[in-house]
Design a protein around this nucleic acid. Sequence first.
DNA 1: ATATTTTATTAGGGTAGTCTAACTTTTTTT
DNA 2: AAAAAAAGTTAGACTACCCTAATAAAATAT
Lengths: 219, 219
Amino acid sequence: MFTATEENYLKALFRLGALTEGGKGPAGTNELALELDIRPATVNGMLKKLREKGLVEQRRYGKILLTEAGRLHAVEVIRKHRLWETFLYEKLHFTWDEVHDVAEQLEHIRSVHLTDRLEEFLGYPSVDPHGDPIPDKEGRMPPEVRRTLAESEEGHAGRIVGVCDNSAEFLQYLDRLGLSLGLRLTITRHIPFDGSVELESAGIRMIITRKVAENLLVD
Amino acid sequence: MFTATEENYLKALFRLGALTEGGKGPAGTNELALELDIRPATVNGMLKKLREKGLVEQRRYGKILLTEAGRLHAVEVIRKHRLWETFLYEKLHFTWDEVHDVAEQLEHIRSVHLTDRLEEFLGYPSVDPHGDPIPDKEGRMPPEVRRTLAESEEGHAGRIVGVCDNSAEFLQYLDRLGLSLGLRLTITRHIPFDGSVELESAGIRMIITRKVAENLLVD
DNA sequence: ATATTTTATTAGGGTAGTCTAACTTTTTTT
DNA sequence: AAAAAAAGTTAGACTACCCTAATAAAATAT
């Protein structure tokens, strides 16, 4: 039905929030090209195809919006991606930063049966190893109940449930800091000087930079 | 390194026994085209590419042989296919006849790490759900210790460990007959008239046609 | 040993997805 | 409001993989 390439375009559009006129705002050709690391001219041709398939709406020289069909398929691909990431992490003991690249391949395997059985095998997880919510079979996305560490108030206690930045670079840095998914911590202080955040976990006190705090999600 | 298409060509050549001048004998262009359900002209072009990549040897108007590099990669793909089939069957409870098509897609996922972890997760199986041997990491294929039901002598007792024909048609017919992988049975009689085989399993006596007997493997 | 059939190859064309370079339209700046 | 910058589009080319039709070589039959 859809090629892996088409699916990647849909996924990227979803990420960019090309859902309604509001929100983060719909993407343009250049923005989408940047996201996919593909030249704008190429993207332009692909958009023509996606319009003809009824997955995308776009007026000449206008912004790009996913149609309902496009949104549904994007969510389906995200569902598969996050289920596979969960499988790799929990069953095959991949590390936090190894799962993404392989899941990028696995998400394009065509078999509804496979996705549903995998979900069952994993015990119907609601979030993936990065803390991102896993959509259900009907394309419903569980609501986000997360905030970045930078936004949480002093005294707040919670667990690390996800990251905003999925790069191997960041994830490996987190490992080095001793921060991992599920870790319980308490925010002891926001330092006004440079935005650093002081926190305590398992009796150990540490300070993380503002940039790290902005990319860590807690419940 | 290799495209999914190239891998399918290598796999097909391996199946056709394009290993040495002896054996089942090396394949020709037409034979390979038939196996892949692709026109000979197309195959011809692809063979040029495989020769240039050093995966295949072929003299003009001559037979096709896999090089050592080609053989190794073919076996690697077969290894992945059979490991995934085992996963689908044992962990996701796919039926005998559902595993093949999905495994055809999964076998092309590129990640050595993934294959090795999957093998470990499955407990280093030596055969897949069809009873076919699973090559190890170094490309060694476990020896075959199987015979078709048609070849086994009267009185022989063993388990069904595989099939020669992997078609959904055949596998569904087996289900209908109540024959499944692992079933213990005893050959009670070879019927000379039409080659049928009489057997007994779990106290039940049945007769299967010669064609079925030729496609069932027992240990 | 010639004719026929089979097998292999070449020639030319198509789709999917990518690129660069040039051009047009829209938006922003001055 | 004109100039400059940014964003979007078109044109033309390339690779991978597939096709059909025609041709050449080899194998087989007469």
